[in-house]
C-alpha cells in the first residue's frame, strides 16, 4: 500500500510528548506572566496540533498533494483571523475629522469595556 506503516514506538513517543505538553501548559497557566500566558498556551497548543497532524494523521509520510490539502484549511483560517483582527484592533486608531463626531466618540466609545480612554489630539 502507499501509506508507509509507521512503527508503533513512534506513536507512544508522540503520546508521551503530548501528555508532557499538557502538563507544561497547565503548569505555565498557574503563573502570572501577563500577555505571555496566552502566547505560551497557544504556542503549546500549536505544537500539540502539529504533532497530531504530522504523526497520528500520517501527513509527514504522505504525498505533497496531501500537504497542500491539509494546509489549505489552516491557510484560510489564518487569513480570516488576520483580516478580522486588523479591523477590530485598529478601530480606535483613527479619529474622525468631524469635530462633532469626534467629541461624540470621546464621550461614548470610552464607556465600552476594553477601550482605554484616548488622549485628546489637537484637531487641525
Amino acid at each position: 500500500m502507499s501509506t508507509e506503516i509507521v512503527s508503533k514506538k513512534i506513536y507512544f513517543v508522540i503520546w508521551a510528548s503530548l501528555m508532557v505538553l499538557l502538563f507544561v501548559t497547565w503548569g505555565v497557566a498557574q503563573f502570572d506572566l501577563g500577555l505571555f500566558n496566552s502566547l505560551a498556551a497557544l504556542t503549546i497548543a500549536i505544537i500539540k496540533m502539529l504533532l497530531v497532524i504530522l504523526y497520528f494523521m500520517h501527513v509527514r509520510y504522505s504525498s505533497r498533494l496531501t500537504w497542500v490539502f491539509a494546509g489549505a484549511g489552516f491557510l484560510w483560517l489564518m487569513i480570516m483571523i488576520t483580516l478580522t483582527l486588523s479591523d477590530y484592533t485598529t478601530r480606535g486608531f483613527v479619529r474622525p475629522y468631524n469635530r462633532v463626531l469626534s467629541n461624540w466618540q470621546d464621550k461614548n466609545w470610552n464607556h465600552l469595556p476594553g477601550d482605554k480612554p484616548m488622549e485628546p489630539r489637537p484637531l487641525p
Binding site: 490539502f69 489552516f74 480570516m80 477590530y88
Partner: peptide, 27 residues
C-alpha cells in the same frame, strides 16, 4: 482532507467569535 478543511471552517466561525469577544471584554 477536503472534508476536514470544511470542518476547520465550520469551527473557525466560533473561534473567531471567541477571539473578538475575548478582545473586547477581556476582564
Amino acid at each position: 482532507w477536503t472534508f476536514l478543511a470544511t470542518e476547520i471552517m465550520f469551527f473557525s466561525g466560533l473561534f473567531m467569535g471567541y477571539i473578538i469577544y475575548r478582545h473586547t471584554y477581556f476582564q
